[in-house]
C-alpha cells in the first residue's frame, strides 16, 4: 500500500448523484445509495447492478455479520432489512416508523445481534437485528434540562468494539456515550470545532458525518466541517477529530493541507495507522493523515465531490460515492500496466 500513489482504478457511472457507499460482504460487490430513492448492489467484475427499492434517500446502512442481510435506514423514517445477495431483493422486515423523520445513522453491534439507529427525532433506538423488533429507546432524561440527552437531530452512531457501549452524536456537536447494560447515558461531551451557530444565517451547522472507533476502541473518530464562516454557502474546512475513549479528550484535529472548503463526508481507518477522509464542497478530494499528525500527508483530487467513503478489507481499495453519480474505486498503490 502506498497512499501517495492513490489513483482511480475503476468508475461506475450511475444515473443520479450518489449519497453513500459500502463494500459488500460478497467479493467484488459495492453497495451504494443514490438520489433515485434506491440502494444499489454493483458487481465490479461483471458490472451487474441490482436495485433495492428503499423509496427513500439512504445515508445510513450496514450489513449483518454473516453478510446475508443489508439494513437500510431511510430519510422516510423506515428501517428495512433486506436479503443482501438476492437477485430481486424484497424486504424481509420493514419497520415503518422506526423514527419520526430522517434516519441518519445505522450501526450493528459487534456480535451482530443488535441494530442501533439515530435520527431527526432526537432519538436513539435499538432493534433486534434478526427480526427488527424494537429493544429499547435511548432518550436520556429529556425532562431535566441539565441531564444528558440529545436535543437536536442525531447524525450518527457507533458501537464500541467491546459491545458494551454506544456513542451517538448530534447537530449541536454533542457526543453521548450510552451504557448498553442499562441503556443509560454515561457521559456527554462536545466536539466544539464540529458545530457552530451561524449568527448571520441564524442556523446551526454541524453534525457528525461519520463516527467510528478504532479497532481496539481506544480512540473515537468524528468527521464534519469546521471553521465555518458562511453556513449556507458551506464555507468551512473538512475536519476529522480524534478523541481518547478514556477521558473524551480531543487528541488531534486532522485538517486538510492545502486547506479545502467543505465537509469530511466519510472516514476510513486503515490498519497501518492511516486516517483517510473523503471531502466534498468546493470540489472533491481524498485526504490522508498519519495517525497523530494533524496535517494531511497527502491529498488526491477527485473528479467531483465525495459524499461517502469505505475501505475494502484488502486495505488497498477505496469506494467513494460522488455527487456526479459516479462511484469511484480508488487504489492506494502505484498504477499497474
Amino acid at each position: 500500500m502506498d497512499f501517495r500513489q492513490t489513483h482511480i482504478e475503476k468508475t461506475h457511472k450511475h444515473t443520479r448523484p450518489l449519497i453513500s457507499c459500502r463494500f459488500g460482504p460478497q467479493p467484488d460487490c459495492v453497495f451504494f445509495a443514490a438520489e433515485d430513492f434506491q440502494l444499489w448492489r454493483w458487481n465490479i467484475s461483471n458490472n451487474e447492478k441490482t436495485a433495492f427499492n428503499t423509496d427513500a434517500w439512504v445515508r445510513g446502512f450496514c450489513f449483518s455479520r454473516d453478510g446475508q442481510r443489508v439494513i437500510t435506514g431511510g430519510y422516510d423514517g423506515r428501517l428495512i432489512i433486506w436479503p443482501a445477495t438476492a437477485t430481486a431483493p424484497q424486504p424481509i422486515h420493514v419497520i415503518d416508523k422506526a423514527h419520526e423523520g430522517w434516519i441518519r445513522g445505522v450501526a450493528i453491534s459487534p456480535d451482530g445481534s443488535t441494530l442501533a439507529t439515530v435520527g431527526n427525532d432526537h432519538m436513539v433506538r435499538l432493534w433486534n437485528a434478526a427480526d427488527g423488533t424494537q429493544i429499547a429507546e435511548l432518550k436520556g432524561h429529556v425532562n431535566d434540562e441539565k441531564a444528558i440527552a440529545h436535543r437536536s437531530h442525531v447524525y450518527n452512531v457507533a458501537f464500541h468494539p467491546d459491545g458494551k457501549a454506544l456513542v451517538t452524536g448530534d447537530l449541536m456537536g454533542q457526543l453521548i456515550e450510552w451504557r448498553l447494560a442499562d441503556r443509560q447515558p454515561v457521559r456527554a461531551w462536545t466536539a466544539d470545532s464540529l458545530s457552530k451557530y451561524d449568527k448571520g444565517f441564524r442556523a446551526q451547522i454541524g453534525g457528525f458525518r461519520t463516527l467510528q472507533f478504532n479497532s481496539d476502541g481506544s480512540r473515537l473518530f468524528a468527521s464534519g466541517i469546521t471553521a465555518v464562516t458562511n453556513a449556507f454557502a458551506g464555507i468551512g474546512n473538512p475536519s476529522v477529530v480524534e478523541f481518547a475513549r478514556q477521558d473524551n479528550k480531543q487528541l488531534v484535529e486532522y485538517l486538510s493541507q492545502p486547506k479545502l472548503q467543505g465537509v469530511a463526508w466519510g472516514v476510513a481507518l486503515h490498519p497501518d495507522d492511516l486516517i483517510i477522509g473523503a471531502h466534498g464542497g468546493s470540489n472533491g478530494n481524498l485526504m490522508f493523515w498519519k495517525a497523530g499528525e494533524a496535517t494531511a500527508a497527502h491529498q488526491f483530487r477527485l473528479p467531483q465531490n465525495g459524499r461517502d467513503l469505505d475501505l475494502h478489507p484488502d486495505g488497498l481499495q477505496l469506494a467513494v460515492a460522488c455527487s456526479d453519480g459516479k462511484l469511484q474505486i480508488c487504489r492506494m498503490d502505484k498504477k499497474t500496466s
Partner: peptide
C-alpha cells in the same frame, strides 16, 4: 424570517428553518 439562502445543505437547513 432569516435565512433560506441554502446553497449548501438545503435540506437540513430547510428542516431547521
Amino acid at each position: 424570517h432569516t435565512n433560506y439562502d441554502t446553497h449548501n445543505e438545503n435540506f437540513s437547513f430547510h428542516l431547521e428553518q
